[in-house]
Design a protein around this nucleic acid. Structure first.
Lengths: 149, 149
DNA sequence: TCAATATAATTGACATATCAATTATATTTG
DNA sequence: CAAATATAATTGATATGTCAATTATATTGA
């Protein structure tokens, strides 16, 4: 079996791309906001737009599992970005609120993220982006479809 | 600032694709080899092809940092997949050898990985793969180039 | 030569990833 | 209604990610 090395596959390219982007984006965030990771920032953005999200729902949006999300929100509460309060409608869930400190971040963060996205996509056409999305979705579908078997 | 939500960006698509692939691949590996993660498998594949790799070099190939690689190899030594011995040429480095147990894995693993790659790329043309690679490399270059600034 | 610098690997501290088990509350169904 | 089942979140255990500091050895250059 002459298997190409992992470093010669498209999966390697996909993974290294997203890792480079994350490193780049994290660096630009850290320069302006200390103690703020990309993922914590994403949580704030989602909660800001959709305040009623449960932990489980946020977890899916940022590709974490529930356990990680519990701990991530713990640290964000400790760092005073978020506040947890009871949800009387369904006492299994929490209501998660953004604190004033969290809202400050929501002023600072969007321009940084905007810049990150723009400069990492510089020179790439709309058409290329569409192509990219279509092909990646094919791969993704193949993976989820075959998972069931 | 009307920033699109992270879930609406191409980065979300890239990240979700690689995560689905990893989940899919891990599942197929776990069914046949217990106690073997994808990344541990990749380390074995690289070491098999290039026995003289240092920990630092392996780390780069699988996108880990040195600290993670130290710990990963610790656990692989504990699990008897690898053996560390001194390198008399340069005593800062180790010589890392694959044990018999590790070699067994190298018999079992390649067909699984082959199947994982094939079925997740089913229906995708050579041309699409080329396109994919070109576009992703553009993004990656943008990130690394701008990192210096 | 030997002092300064570079490199490979480790360690500590803390955050996150993952899996399985558990708790508390809701919902469904016999 | 009560028992069975489902759901949201937590917890424990272990692995990995990341950063900074440290150790041990090599290399370089005055």
């Amino acid at each position: 079996m002459n298997l190409p090395l992992p470093s010669e596959t498209i999966f390697h390219v996909i993974e290294s791309t997203i890792k480079e982007y994350r490193k780049f984006a994290q660096k630009n965030i850290s320069e302006q906001i200390q103690d703020m990771t990309i993922d914590q920032g994403l949580v704030l953005l989602f909660l800001n737009k959709h305040p009623d999200l449960t932990q489980k729902e946020i977890a899916e949006l940022v590709f974490k599992d529930n356990a990680s999300m519990t701990r991530m929100i713990n640290t964000m509460v400790q760092k005073k970005y978020l506040k947890r309060s009871m949800n009387p409608e369904d006492r299994r869930r929490y209501k998660i609120e953004i604190t004033d400190k969290g809202k400050e971040v929501l002023e600072t963060l969007p321009p940084i993220i905007h810049h990150n996205r723009n400069s990492s996509l510089k020179g790439i056409t709309k058409n290329e982006l569409n192509q990219l999305e279509i092909i990646l979705n094919k791969i993704k579908t193949n993976c989820t479809k075959n998972m069931i078997l």
